[in-house]
Design a protein around this nucleic acid. Structure first.
Lengths: 234, 234
DNA sequence: ACACAACTAGAACGCCGTTCCATAATATTG
DNA sequence: CAATATTATGGAACGGCGTTCTAGTTGTGT
């Protein structure tokens, strides 16, 4: 009886031929493909060509495309979080946020993969360090979940939006500043009485730094966490 | 010379046959299809069958699938935002947030459509009312963007995650509580020393109300906005 | 009645994820 | 060392997708 394709490798105790496939090699090639060609560049055909094999062979090591994408996403997040130094609670949260923002900016596909991703591995990698630092801040137990979910939603939400904008700009063949200018123009031309805020935001959008704004918004959330903590201690 | 397919309708001045196609009819059918069959249920073939026509005919009224999805998303958001009553700034923000949470919970595909959506129409529908209320709160100009981006990231981020969880549960054929229980179990079985926070969160996850937690987190962000406003006035 | 534009419908194209299966490489057994 | 079972490979094939093409139909203006 032919065994069904392995999804989990049996710890490869013995050596096989030099050029043999492995989950690790497939993952590495997938990440390269995703980084160079974007999310729609990852296909089993392109992947098998790059690995000099057929599509069928890949399925021995990987369950399906979703499995592949989740694993690639997890690999990036693991590297990203490992590189974050732990210092003060607030500083560490800021460092985690910055690292995630940069990682998702560099690998935009991670943003969309996170939405689809199973709740298990990739999300937990982010949840755990943020949760630990929120605890270290002294947030009482019953408020921790709200604090952590606000932080995670903010960090991932803005990072994802930033990555999506970058991809949209690339699709239209514009660089960052041209893209921002075109959005700003479009917003300026909206009806003045119906869209006063969006029109006023158009000016700010034109030449802002996404990363600076991201950290400013993070401070807003952190202040919210700080003030509720103080309130409950009073 | 045959005109290229219309993407914008010429205001249909004269009547055509009763069963003629139109952008509105296509959009309506798309939303039904998305709601009943999920995001992958929207295909040009299924759509053309439901409309008793061929795939080609649809392309006369719609540029491509992305256009179709964005328009459907925009339609839902327009209805959602129109239904929100404007009262106190804080109460209105909470009402907008609640309405969006419920709309995305009911139409999970809106969540993912928003990620891809062109920055123009759908996002602006949300940006504008939130921005107006943040202004009404008295947040000074230079802090408005950080406040609004924090609110939007939080609201859309949590709503999207909630919708994604619902879809994941449906994929696995579990109802909400079974799904939460399985996540909670998985988190409980993580290594105690490496994942203390996630393990402690497992208990809370098990029988929480997403909507209640969502509003609690929203208050954290609102407090952050309030405290930074006070600080700058001091 | 005729010409021309607006619109329809379905066949066809190329690509996708996935499955199947004949075969090769390796491990295990007698 | 031969024989056999297991593990792994790769290419052909399937059904379905978004999209394009085009022959045809419906409606309008002259």
């Amino acid at each position: 009886m032919a065994a069904p394709p392995r999804t989990v490798q049996p710890a490869r105790s013995v050596k096989r031929r030099e050029d043999s496939l492995s989950r690790a090699r497939i993952l590495e090639a997938s990440i390269e493909l995703l980084d160079t060609c974007g999310e729609e560049g990852l296909t089993f055909r392109a992947l098998s060509e790059r690995l000099a094999t057929g599509p069928g062979a890949i399925y021995w090591h990987v369950a399906n495309k979703s499995d592949l994408l989740t694993a690639a996403c997890d690999a990036i997040l693991a590297r990203t979080m490992d590189a974050v130094a732990i210092t003060t609670p607030e500083a560490t949260i800021r460092a985690v946020a910055s690292a995630l923002f940069d990682a998702i900016d560099k690998h935009p596909w991670v943003g969309s993969a996170l939405t689809t991703a199973a709740v298990l591995s990739p999300i937990v990698r982010i949840l755990e360090p943020i949760g630990q630092q929120v605890c270290a801040l002294g947030v009482p137990d019953e408020q921790q979940w709200a604090a952590v979910s606000a932080l995670m939603a903010y960090i991932l939400g803005v990072s994802r939006q930033n990555a999506a904008n970058g991809q949209l700009a690339r699709t239209q063949g514009l660089d960052r500043s041209c893209f921002l200018a075109s959005v700003s123009d479009a917003w300026s031309q909206l009806d003045a009485s119906a869209y006063p805020f969006t029109r006023s935001a158009a000016g700010h959008i034109r030449d802002h730094d996404d990363r600076v704004d991201f950290l400013a918004g993070l401070d807003v959330v952190l202040r919210g966490i700080g003030s509720s903590r103080r309130r409950s201690h009073a």
